[in-house]
């Protein structure tokens, strides 16, 4: 019964709320120098941001980030987009993230979400999971999983976002 009340309370509080997360929450993640960074402050000078949740052991994630890696110089030139890759590797693997990205040659901004706190706050179930943020930091699109070729669709959306300010 009490649980039900709780549920109703939550729903009530939210009936007038907008559906789906629209901004990055104020959860702390760590950058490659061990600094705690508030995820809500991630930005790209008014340009779009792609946020990709991944892990060193997740093969589709690595495949996706490698596919984007081949195209990334063009993406940046044409749209000024920035890719932020947030690793959910736990303490077993998190120390290996930096050597891993070095060996892959990625030039993305990399952060650690070691105990999946940000992942949970964004309701990310499985990885890879990709978000597209507009220049104001609004989440305009998200996608779960990776099928080779998905990166082409993502780039179409980025181009549309840059050209019209929206993906619709």
């Amino acid at each position: 019964m009490k649980k039900l009340i709780f549920g109703i309370a939550l729903l009530l509080g939210a009936t007038t709320a907008s559906i789906a997360q629209d901004k990055m929450p104020a959860i702390k993640i760590k950058d490659m120098t061990g600094n705690a960074v508030d995820a809500s402050t991630l930005s790209n000078d008014g340009n779009p941001v792609v946020i990709s949740f991944w892990a060193t052991w997740c093969k589709p994630c690595v495949r996706e980030l490698n596919a984007i890696h081949d195209l990334y110089p063009d993406w940046v030139d044409e749209t000024k987009v920035k890719l932020i890759a947030i690793s959910i590797d736990d303490s077993r693997q998190s120390a290996k993230v930096r050597p891993f990205i070095t060996s892959q040659g990625w030039e993305y901004d990399i952060y650690l979400d070691e105990n999946s706190e940000l992942r949970r706050a964004l309701n990310v179930n499985n990885i890879p999971h990709t978000f597209l943020l507009d220049g104001e930091g609004n989440i305009v699109w998200q996608h779960n999983g990776y099928i080779p070729g998905d990166e082409e669709h993502l780039y179409e959306l980025i181009e549309k976002l840059v050209a019209t300010g929206s993906i619709d």
Partner: peptide, 10 residues
């Protein structure tokens, strides 16, 4: 601004 609601399901 009434906030946002989000979730997941499996």
């Amino acid at each position: 601004d009434y906030g946002t609601i989000s979730g997941n399901f499996q």
